[in-house]
């Protein structure tokens, strides 16, 4: 499964990542972070294609994206 790591306390809830996500997997969380913002959270991470657009858009460099590589058995 692909992974999206969000540094919640860096997030300022600008929502630029939410709009750029093709699959609409990001939303603001109910909880508050240390700065008093509702940080973004990812739901249904299994649908994430690890395109990385959210991280490219993020002005806080608070999103990291990792793509799972299916290791093919070679003969």
């Amino acid at each position: 499964m692909n992974r999206v790591v969000i540094d919640k306390d860096r997030c300022k809830a600008c929502k630029l990542c939410i709009n750029v996500c093709q699959r609409k997997l990001l939303e603001l969380a109910d909880e508050l972070n240390a700065k008093g913002y509702h940080p973004i959270a990812i739901h249904a991470v299994e649908k994430c294609t690890a395109c990385g657009l959210c991280a490219i858009m993020c002005p806080e460099a608070s999103i990291e994206v990792f793509k799972e590589i299916k290791v093919k058995k070679t003969a």
Partner: peptide, 28 residues
């Protein structure tokens, strides 16, 4: 499973939080 790094916070940034307003493109 192995992982490919699509995006990682660059090492040349310090850990300090940006003081910019939400959505300001300085951070980008």
């Amino acid at each position: 499973a192995e992982e490919q790094v699509i995006f990682k916070r660059p090492a040349a940034l310090t850990e300090k939080y940006f003081h910019y307003c939400p959505g300001c493109t300085h951070g980008i």
